[in-house]
């Protein structure tokens, strides 16, 4: 196996790491960069726990090779709060009790953030479709959808 050198930015910081060709971006984030906020649920693109944003696109970090991250701008859950100040989505998830075990939460927060960046005023249906690739085995989704809609309302200044 050959080692590849990758340089990219993660949450605005320049990072460099070495990876095997077969290593996923998810493994590189967690094992090489020690950013363990991004979770592995399935490793096969089905659960969305590994959701990150790469050059503005919501993707599964388990479906992307680490070498493919060369030159890319990656956003993970670790970059969502500003210092001690939580992002409105994070705050609303706590207020609405939109999490229980929390495994799905980083992925859902990242996915919701990417939705609200595109569509600040989504309908409930649009939220449900956008989050269809994020599985939660605990909450039953209602509280998650409520939290996203409420955060959207607040972020629009209503």
């Amino acid at each position: 196996m050959s080692r590849n050198h990758v340089s990219a930015t993660v949450n605005g910081d320049q990072v460099e790491f070495l990876c095997e060709t077969g290593q996923t971006l998810l493994e590189a984030l967690r094992d090489e960069l020690r950013l363990t906020g991004t979770k592995e649920g399935c490793g096969t693109g089905d659960c969305g726990a590994c959701s990150v944003i790469v050059d503005g696109r919501l993707v599964c970090a388990c479906l992307m090779l680490a070498v493919e991250a060369e030159g890319k701008a990656i956003q993970t859950i670790e970059g969502m709060a500003t210092g001690e100040t939580l992002h409105p989505l994070q705050r609303k998830f706590i207020e609405h009790a939109a999490l229980q075990c929390g495994i799905c939460t980083p992925g859902i927060l990242i996915a919701a953030r990417s939705l609200l960046e595109r569509n600040p005023n989504p309908t409930e249906d649009e939220v449900r479709y956008w989050l269809a690739g994020n599985l939660c085995r605990c909450t039953g989704y209602h509280k998650i959808v409520d939290a996203v809609l409420d955060a959207a309302r607040e972020m629009r200044g209503g």
């Binding site: 693109g45 919501l58 993707v59 599964c60 479906l63 996915a111 269809a132 690739g133």
Partner: peptide
Amino acid sequence: IGSVQVKGR
């Protein structure tokens, strides 16, 4: 074709 995440790639 899959979720938003899958379609992003």
